[in-house]
Computed example of a mutant assay.
Amino acid sequence: MKYKMIVTDLDDTLLNSQGKVSDKDKESIMKAQENGVIFVLASGRPTYAMRDLAQELKLDKFGSFILSYNGSIITNCKTGKNILEETLTKDEIHLLYDFSKNNNVEIITYLDDSIISEDYSSYIEVEVELTKMPFEKVKNFKAVVDKDCVKCIMLEEPEYLKQVEKKLNSELGNQFSIAISKPFFLEVTKLGVDKGSSLLKLANKLGIQQDEIIVVGDSYNDIPMLKVAGMPTCVENAKPEIKNICKFISTSNNNNGMTKIIENLIFKK
């Protein structure tokens, strides 16, 4: 099988514990792109927080793509243009805000390349550090969020957040796509939007078949794209539920996991 596309999650998958791509993995990614493989960064992160890495990996030079906000936006790195953009309406975001308040969890959204919330905590600080985006603490979330936005995240202690996830799915699961990414991040996007559905739209646009796609992940929000890939793979540090649906398990994100995937699935004779 000749694979034409590699799609990878970022945090705890492509990126090591220092938030970097190892030199060895970077070299392997370059080699794959030089041989015509399209490389896609697929993350819950905002586009803003993925641009530097896309430049570092020369995705613009090779015509590769960013799939950000859990699939809500797809960006062609060569042109810098979005080829897909799915948003939550202002009213939907306000509904999620009300749910968060009723269930004692923090909520953030993204407005004009800034993170918006009425709260600030160690969990929100993680997102600010990961994305390097400006943070704006506001007094009235609904008043400030006066237009459509791409997604929301609810944040709280992991065990409690699992309970909130169940309740959110029960009450509003028919209105939104809902997934835990990091244990303390509950991500909400437009109904029907996830990494898998958006990946299929991109592949269809490029004339790439599902069995020509390698996907690499580690966590729950990667499940939709792992399920649509011909070759679902994961890093060794992935959650057990993720390993159970993968055909190839690589080394960890701290041990050049991407290189092993590329060497074994792209270049192995």
Rank of each mutant, 00 (worst) to 15 (best):
L202D: 04
L202A: 01
L202R: 05
L202F: 04
L202S: 06
L202G: 04
A203P: 13
A203T: 13
N204H: 10
N204R: 11
N204Q: 14
N204W: 03
N204M: 04
K205Y: 13
K205R: 08
K205S: 10
K205A: 06
L206M: 15
L206Q: 05
L206I: 07
L206T: 05
G207V: 08
G207T: 08
I208H: 02
I208S: 07
I208T: 07
I208W: 04
I208C: 01
I208G: 10
I208E: 10
Q209Y: 13
Q209V: 03
Q209G: 06
Q209K: 15
Q210D: 14
Q210I: 12
Q210E: 15
Q210R: 15
Q210Y: 12
Q210S: 14
D211Y: 05
E212A: 11
E212M: 03
E212G: 06
E212D: 12
E212W: 11
E212R: 09
I213D: 10
I213S: 02
I213G: 09
I213F: 00
I214G: 08
I214S: 00
I214K: 04
I214R: 01
I214C: 09
V215L: 05
V215A: 14
V215K: 14
V215I: 07
V215M: 12
V215E: 12
V216Q: 06
V216I: 14
V216G: 02
G217R: 01
G217Q: 10
D218C: 01
D218Q: 04
S219F: 09
S219P: 11
S219N: 15
S219Q: 14
S219L: 06
S219M: 15
S219H: 14
S219V: 11
Y220Q: 15
N221D: 08
N221P: 06
N221Y: 05
N221I: 00
N221M: 06
N221S: 08
N221H: 02
D222H: 03
D222F: 00
D222Y: 01
I223Q: 13
I223W: 01
I223P: 07
I223F: 11
I223K: 12
I223R: 10
I223C: 07
P224K: 10
P224N: 12
P224L: 02
P224G: 09
P224D: 08
M225G: 00
M225L: 02
L226R: 09
L226Y: 10
K227W: 03
K227T: 08
K227P: 01
V228F: 06
V228G: 11
V228T: 13
V228L: 11
V228A: 09
V228M: 12
V228Y: 07
A229T: 03
A229P: 03
G230C: 08
G230P: 04
G230S: 07
G230W: 08
G230F: 05
M231Y: 07
M231A: 03
M231G: 02
